[in-house]
Nucleic acid binder design. Sequence first.
DNA 1: CCATGTGAAGGTATTCACAGCC
DNA 2: GGCTGTGAATACCTTCACATGG
Lengths: 213, 213
Amino acid sequence: MRYHKIPDETVRRLPVYLRGLMVSANQGNRYISSLSLADSVGVDSWQIRKDFSYFGDFGTRGVGYDIERLARESKKILRLDVIRRAVLVGVGDLGSALLAYPGFDVYGLDIVAAFDIDPHKIGRTANGVTIEDFARIDTVTEREINLAIVAVPRTAAQLAVVKLVAAGIKGVLNFAPCKVSVPKRVKVITLDIAMELARLPYYIPRSSRVEEG
Amino acid sequence: MRYHKIPDETVRRLPVYLRGLMVSANQGNRYISSLSLADSVGVDSWQIRKDFSYFGDFGTRGVGYDIERLARESKKILRLDVIRRAVLVGVGDLGSALLAYPGFDVYGLDIVAAFDIDPHKIGRTANGVTIEDFARIDTVTEREINLAIVAVPRTAAQLAVVKLVAAGIKGVLNFAPCKVSVPKRVKVITLDIAMELARLPYYIPRSSRVEEG
DNA sequence: CCATGTGAAGGTATTCACAGCC
DNA sequence: GGCTGTGAATACCTTCACATGG
């Protein structure tokens, strides 16, 4: 199976597995079966086995997976062993919350710089990061920053991304609710918060006002 | 085509189309073709036509779609015409940012209440919403609130969701990076921010440090 | 025996190409 | 002529069932 195309959905699940592995490691476990990992992350066990099988044989039959090793391999696959530094663009309400967000740590990800265009914000420090002028965004090139988090208004997103790409950014997590165009070699993941909430009502049946849970 | 099962992916795209329609309406347009909508939202035109065809014939051949009508129909399909009130649980950094987030408006969504367990936060007001004691979460039942946004730490998420379900909540947007178990009739969408950033490096080729954008 | 790893089967969503209608 | 709507073809992903190996 090793020389297959990897489904995008598999890549989407890898960080979920990785978190599950680290939680289990923290509980002092050494090995984990696909069945118990499945149980803790909410994915079927055969799905987990197939997903990992795309990258190699990491398990031991009759035993399970060595947690340390599988976590290490997962990080390597996701390139989290080399790419870990990110820049934040747009230090508004959402941007500030992202600077303070504790969840990036698990993956070894680090927001090491923040930029804004608002003169009132430039120079101030938030969560140990000094906010810089977005006009100087090109300095990220020499600072080995590959990733960007974009938390600017919708109308500013495309321009921000263009400048980020020019500054050598290779991957963008975009919180602005719009399409952004980039060269093929750059990867953009758009995360539209309001849209996620908006598709929730679809799954709620019209009927029933009060039931017991 | 009207009596088909609707693909989940179609439901995921509807809010994107809806936003595109509203942007176009604001520009003073009356009709829009699948081709130009495709261009503005970044989805292929045949995909758009097929997605809408699951719900009925909303377009006019040779002309395109009546923007007002298609937006209205899209809202009805997504149940955004009836379900619009949401509660926020967890008013930390992320929760506060979500309270202030301007993006929900487009979809007519409203965060009308906020809860926390921290006594220092209870009673304070943020963005016109007074923070209440989470122990009183059951009051959402009589306030016609169907949706919840959960922005609490990972270890508190499952309990928070259990109480929300008991209080009659039908849909949850969960920002805590973990699986949460709910009865089948309740829909949960988990949005793990760090995970999204973590899968970005995978798509970045190992090579090339500096190129021109 | 136990749990992994994987071809094969089954299901779902995307893409195509064009018939149908304005 | 232009644009929608859709069956058919294709690609993709999931699920199954079991052979494989510790």
